[in-house]
C-alpha cells in the first residue's frame, strides 16, 4: 500500500519532468541545441501566474497567460539569441543558452527580488484528498497526471498527423533537404520552440501547484533534472523524453522512500553519468527514426 502511494508520487513528479524534458528533446532534435534556458522559462511562467493570481484574477486567465508568456519569451529568445548563431559552431549556441539562462535568473532577481513568493496553489487546484483504502491521492497529483497524459497525446497527434508536424520531422531529419523541399525552416524552428514552451508553461503551473514557492532560481535544478530525463530517454526522441521523465520521477521518489532522501539529487545525476558512459543514446535515442 505504501509502495503504491509512493508510485503515485513518482508518477506525479515524473509527469512534470516529462513535460519539461519534452521541450529539451524537441529543441535538441531540431537544431542540436541544449537549451539550458528552458528551466528558466518555467520560472518565468511561474512568476506570470503568481502576479496574475495575487492580483486576484481568474485562475484560468492566469494559466492561459502564463502559457502564452512562456511561448512569447521562448520565441523571443530564439529570435534574438539563437537565430543569429544558426550557422555558428554548436558550442557557441550552448554557451549562449547558458548565458540566456543566467540572464533570465538575474533579471527575475532584479524585478522580483531574491525572496521566494508563495504561489496561491489552492486557487488553481483545491487542496482535496481522495482516500482509497489506505492510499491517499491528492487532487493535485490526479490533475498533474491527467493533464500530462492529455498533453502528450496532443503532442503526438501534432507531430504525427499535421503538416507542421511533418515539417518538424523533416527539418530534424535533414535541414538542407527540407529547405530544398520548400519547407520554411525558420518558421518550423520557431514553431518547435513554441510547442516546447507551451509544455513548459503547463509544466510550470503543475510544478507550482505541487511546490508553491516561486523564486528566480527555481528553474535551474528542475531544468537540469529534466535534461537528465531527456538524455536518459534518448535526447531528440519524444517518447524517450516521456519515458525518461517518468523514470527519473520514480527513481527520486523511491530513493527517498527507502530512507536515502539526502541522496535523491546524487542519484539523478549518477544516472546521467551512467547513461553517458554505458548508453549515450539513452533508451530510445538510436532506434527512433523520426527525431523531432
Amino acid at each position: 500500500m505504501l509502495l503504491l502511494s509512493q508510485l503515485i508520487n513518482g508518477l506525479q513528479l515524473g509527469s512534470i519532468y516529462a513535460l519539461v524534458a519534452l521541450g529539451y528533446s524537441m529543441v535538441y532534435g531540431i537544431i542540436m541545441l541544449l537549451n539550458f534556458a528552458h528551466g528558466d522559462i518555467i520560472m518565468a511562467g511561474g512568476y506570470i501566474a503568481v502576479l496574475i493570481l495575487t492580483a486576484g484574477r481568474n485562475p484560468v486567465l492566469a494559466i492561459i497567460l502564463a502559457i502564452i508568456g512562456c511561448v512569447l519569451l521562448s520565441v523571443l529568445i530564439e529570435k534574438v539569441a539563437y537565430k543569429p548563431l544558426r550557422s555558428a559552431p554548436r558550442i557557441s549556441l550552448l554557451i549562449t543558452a547558458i548565458g540566456v539562462s543566467l540572464f533570465l535568473q538575474n533579471m527575475a532577481q532584479l524585478l522580483f527580488t531574491a525572496n521566494a513568493r508563495s504561489f496561491p496553489n489552492t486557487v488553481v487546484i483545491p487542496a482535496i484528498n481522495f482516500r482509497i483504502g489506505s492510499i491517499n491521492i491528492s487532487l493535485t497529483a490526479l490533475v498533474t497526471i491527467v493533464v500530462t497524459i492529455i498533453s502528450m497525446i496532443c503532442l503526438t497527434l501534432l507531430v504525427q498527423k499535421t503538416k507542421m508536424g511533418k515539417a518538424m520531422r523533416a527539418v530534424s531529419e535533414d535541414t538542407d533537404a527540407a529547405k530544398l523541399m520548400g519547407i520554411n525552416v525558420n518558421s518550423t524552428i520557431t514553431f518547435t520552440f513554441a510547442t516546447g514552451s507551451t509544455l513548459a508553461g503547463i509544466g510550470s503551473i503543475l510544478y507550482c501547484c505541487r511546490y508553491p514557492l516561486v523564486s528566480p532560481t527555481m528553474g535551474s535544478l528542475l531544468g537540469l533534472k529534466a535534461f537528465v530525463a531527456a538524455v536518459l530517454g534518448g535526447i531528440g526522441s519524444i517518447p524517450g523524453a516521456m519515458i525518461g521523465g517518468l523514470a527519473i520521477g520514480f527513481a527520486e521518489v523511491l530513493v527517498s522512500a527507502v530512507g536515502l532522501s539526502e541522496w535523491t539529487d546524487a542519484v539523478v545525476f549518477a544516472i546521467l553519468i551512467i547513461v553517458l558512459l554505458v548508453k549515450p543514446t539513452g533508451f530510445l535515442g538510436r532506434s527512433m527514426q523520426e527525431k523531432v
Binding site: M1, L2, S5, Q6, N9, Q12, L13, S134, N136, Y211, L213, M218, L221, E252, V253, L254, V255, S256, A257, G259, S261, E262, W263, T264, D265
Partner: peptide, 20 residues
Amino acid sequence: TESYADGSQDFQGQLTNIAA
C-alpha cells in the same frame, strides 16, 4: 524520523512514509 538534503523542494517520499 525522515530527513532531506539542504535545498530540497520535494518531501513527498518522506511524508508518505510518515503518513503511513
